[in-house]
């Protein structure tokens, strides 16, 4: 069984929500990313979303744009990120979703990318610019290798669309909490509860709420929550500063 499914099963049995933090791989360098992953796991992260930096992240706000640029300037590559996942996997069963825009995956080769994920021990793939309409070739490959290709639902998705997306979704539903790009905001969408209820009428999969959290603004009703820019901002300083944040993170109980 895929580690993501297994994690949600045990969380459900324990009546707990999932905490799914995001890190931009290689920001400011991969050694720091590796330390942050271990610290997040120790601090209670249930699933990790590991961002593969891209030159043109159209779904991301300034925080993750800047993190991606720092990582690319630092020389991070796909192969180095795969090697990082392999190192983490040697000592940990933390489920790992890779977040990548579609072009790096397409350029690597869909089949090669999926095989590499299996080889290094990644569990799922989040592709923010891959719509339901274009997902079929990649989806076929992830399903055949028991990997999760995560589907998005947005506040602007019509009910008909939500139904179609939910009907083919795998692992969990990534519910985009606000219309916009990633980045910390003070407000939380008031309709979140209603949206979660609607999605739950289409699928039994866990619904994870992402985009635009500040760390303390976790809504009580969200069954799982992701946090990207907040954790990226915390790891964005030089590595010494990042180490300080690791301590901060490890001291903070999330669940």
């Amino acid at each position: 069984m895929n580690r993501i499914d297994r994690k949600f099963q045990s969380l459900k049995a324990a009546g707990k929500a999932a905490f799914m933090p995001y890190l931009s791989a290689g920001d400011p360098d991969l050694e720091t990313t590796e330390k942050l992953i271990r610290a997040l796991e120790a601090a209670g992260a249930d699933i990790l979303e590991l961002g593969i930096p891209f030159s043109d992240p159209v779904a991301d706000g300034p925080t993750i744009q800047a993190a991606s640029q720092r990582a690319l300037a630092g020389g991070v590559t796909l192969e180095k990120i795969f090697a990082l996942v392999r190192r983490v996997r040697e000592k940990s069963q933390l489920p790992i979703n890779l977040m990548s825009y579609y072009n790096p995956i397409y350029h690597y080769g869909l089949e090669q990318f999926v095989e590499k994920m299996v080889e290094v021990g990644a569990d799922g793939l989040i592709v923010p610019d891959l719509s339901l309409e274009e997902a079929h070739p990649l989806k076929e490959l992830t399903v055949s290798r028991d990997l999760k290709l995560i589907s998005f639902i947005a506040p602007t998705s019509s009910s008909a669309r939500q139904k179609r997306i939910a009907g083919q979704a795998d692992g969990f539903i990534y519910l985009v909490s606000l219309t916009g790009v990633t980045g910390a905001r003070q407000q939380v969408n008031d309709n979140l509860g209603r949206m979660i209820t609607e999605i739950r009428s289409y699928t039994g999969l866990p619904v994870c709420v992402g985009l635009a959290w500040r760390l303390r603004s976790r809504p009580a009703r969200a069954p799982a929550w992701l946090t990207g820019s907040s954790s990226a901002a915390r790891s964005s300083k030089k590595s010494t500063a990042a180490k300080g944040k690791v301590i901060w993170l490890t001291r903070r109980p999330f669940l």
């Binding site: 159209v58 779904a59 579609y102 923010p128 610019d129 891959l130 719509s131 339901l132 309409e133 274009e134 998005f152 639902i153 947005a154 506040p155 602007t156 998705s157 019509s158 669309r161 997306i165 985009v176 219309t179 916009g180």
Partner: peptide, 23 residues
């Protein structure tokens, strides 16, 4: 009908924009 010219074209965009594209 899906917006492709052979293998080219398509709609590779975030879900948040798909509603607007459909409209």
């Amino acid at each position: 009908s899906t917006g492709h010219y052979g293998e080219f074209g398509g709609k590779y965009i975030p879900e948040v924009l798909m509603g607007a594209i459909e409209e």
